[in-house]
């Protein structure tokens, strides 16, 4: 069995803080793994380790079977990333930003295809030709989603991707994740939204002080039980 994402005894120690303690995690194709936890619990550190933005103190992260530290460029062909706060070139239009990031990822889309990606992500068509400097946070988030989708990556790394999105857009995003999961994409999503995690995730993991303290399949719990479980760990 090849996992698309794998962490083996992954550990990150900062001078003053242990950010991640011996993380072992496997995520298979089609899985949507939601990381829950308070701020500073290590969710973002985990994602940054998979991205290669942070170097592990010990252990290793693998993307599509490739060790991140050894193949820092190669792995980025296989993953797409949506940060909590998508920032783009403000003087370019949404369309131009998408075209630029897609071409950097190796794709060359005709303008109508680019527009489709943006509207599919929920961006109004009239906004696509406007400078991103005029966008709201939610609109930038949608361009970020379009950039990630247009990359056709096997792995999605999402760091609170729905922050700034209204409930309708969040819901559409969940739909999108389900669709991608159906196509075999593995998703690792850090979130604070327990209910959405339950709704869209296949498994949830609860992190506390750098440690993954529990992992449950979402089918085994309902949202209330998950919330109770979460709160127990936080006390």
């Amino acid at each position: 069995m090849t996992y698309l994402l794998e962490a083996r005894s992954l550990r990150k120690q900062y001078a003053d803080k242990l950010a991640l303690r011996e993380l072992n995690l496997q995520i298979a194709p089609g899985e949507i793994f939601c990381l829950l936890g308070q701020n500073g619990a290590g969710k973002s550190t985990t994602i940054n380790l998979f991205l290669g933005f942070v170097q592990p103190t010990s252990g290793a992260a693998f993307v599509n079977g490739l060790e991140v530290a050894v193949h820092p460029l190669e792995i980025k062909k296989h993953l797409a990333y949506i940060p909590e706060n998508v920032m783009l070139y403000p003087h370019l239009t949404g369309l131009e930003n998408l075209a630029l990031f897609s071409s950097l990822a190796g794709f060359k889309y005709p303008a109508p295809a680019l527009l489709d990606y943006l509207t599919d992500a929920g961006l109004p068509a009239e906004a696509a030709g406007r400078r991103v400097g005029t966008y709201s946070k939610g609109m930038r988030q949608k361009v970020g989603i379009a950039i990630a989708v247009a990359k056709h990556a096997k792995v999605l790394l999402l760091d609170e991707p729905t922050s700034g999105l209204d409930p309708k857009a969040s819901n559409e995003f969940s739909e999108l994740l389900r669709r991608l999961s159906g196509q075999g994409t593995a998703v690792l999503m850090a979130t604070h939204d327990i209910f959405r995690a339950k709704e869209v995730g296949t498994r949830v993991g609860i992190m506390r002080e750098g440690e993954l303290v529990d992992v449950r399949p979402t089918t085994a719990l309902n949202a209330r039980e998950l919330e109770q479980l979460y709160l127990t760990y936080m006390h």
Binding site: L51, F53, L73, K76, P83, V86, F101, L104, A105, I147
Partner: peptide
């Protein structure tokens, strides 16, 4: 500083 770098460096470019 504009926060664009994470998205840029998530692409396969050195």
């Amino acid at each position: 500083e504009e926060g664009i770098l994470p998205l840029l460096l998530a692409q396969p470019i050195g």
